[in-house]
């Protein structure tokens, strides 16, 4: 978060979890020594998702040929398996490693540029070029604006963020600074519906509970539909109100808030707490409803489920 997007991208693509998740660990160059010998070959999953989801975007102007070429360049990027470690005991099991015998030999052409590098540097050079591509600047700017400003990101904010991305060569601190300085980010009309993760974290903060059993926490994330590391697809979690604010999802939030309220009982004065947490945002009508609740736990449920607390 304090470095450049380029480093972030390369580290993500070398991360063992990503290598396994998108099948890169098993991909072999079709004419590489390993590809010719064993019963394995190319897998284009990671290459495609890098182009589509992490950099250029689906409308970013790449072709199937670019995907295949990039996938070939990525061959050899894998992790230390048990057989590899048996041969080279100094390697750490499960860590990233480049294995030349898996790598598809020869130059690769991606987005019209030819990469003649040998070995690991070839895909790294492609990733570095992708990381500063203008389409990538737009992708990242749009994601940030959607996440921090509103579901329909204001075009001016996206343009400003994209310009900052390009100007700073993808420096993440520069982007964060730009974001904080944008008037759109402070517009009272621009609001975001909390994701389950936002809601659980902020809800626990509101209650002041600083110790929650792991099981209870996992149960909460499961109930609310956002289990960590279990995003439904490589695209990650939805980032808009329409995806999270369905009636059923609201019911699940009430259930969780109610369970939390019951657990805390009268150890909290809900109206005061809501006032402390929400400040000027707390409407008189909500404050009154919390004060008139039939019990402290119902009051806390109402505070957690109030529109003021559900939107950020």
């Amino acid at each position: 978060m304090t470095g450049g997007f380029s480093d972030l991208l390369l580290n993500v693509c070398r991360h063992p979890a990503m290598l396994l998740y998108l099948d890169q660990a098993q991909s072999r160059g079709p004419t590489s020594p390993a590809g010719q010998r064993a019963n394995t070959g190319l897998n284009e999953n990671l290459a495609r998702e890098v182009l589509e989801l992490m950099t250029l975007g689906a409308q970013g102007g790449y072709t199937q040929a670019d995907v295949t070429e990039f996938a070939k360049a990525l061959t050899g990027w894998t992790l230390v398996s048990k057989p590899v470690r048996e041969r080279v005991p100094t390697l750490e099991l499960g860590a990233f490693v480049f294995i030349p015998q898996f790598h598809e030999p020869g130059p690769r052409t991606v987005l019209g540029k030819t990469y003649a590098q040998a070995g690991e540097d070839q895909a790294a050079a492609i990733l570095r070029d992708l990381s500063v591509h203008p389409a990538t600047a737009r992708t990242i700017a749009t994601k940030l604006a959607r996440h921090f400003i509103s579901d329909e990101p204001p075009p001016g904010a996206v343009a400003a963020l994209a310009a900052a991305f390009t100007r700073s060569n993808g420096s993440l601190p520069a982007l964060h600074e730009t974001l904080i300085g944008l008037p759109e980010a402070w517009d009272a009309q621009a609001r975001k519906f909390k994701s389950p993760n936002d809601f659980i974290v902020s809800g626990l903060r509101l209650t002041g509970l600083n110790k929650v059993e792991d099981r209870a926490l996992i149960a909460a994330y499961t109930q609310l539909g956002q289990v960590p590391y279990r995003a439904p697809s490589p695209k990650g979690w939805p980032d808009d109100a329409a995806s999270w604010s369905g009636g059923d999802a609201l019911m699940k939030r009430i259930e969780w808030a109610q369970a939390l309220g019951q657990r805390l009982g009268s150890s909290i004065k809900p109206a005061e707490r809501a006032n402390d947490v929400l400040g000027p945002v707390l409407r008189p009508v909500t404050r009154q409803a919390i004060e008139r609740a039939e019990s402290a736990d119902q009051g806390l449920t109402l505070a957690l489920m109030s529109p003021e607390f559900q939107w950020r």
Partner: peptide, 19 residues
């Protein structure tokens, strides 16, 4: 969608409707 913990109290739900 399926639920795995206690259902909401109807009175709480009705108060939330007002809010």
């Amino acid at each position: 969608s399926p639920s795995f913990i206690a259902a909401p109290n109807a009175d709480t739900v009705s108060r939330l409707m007002d809010l």
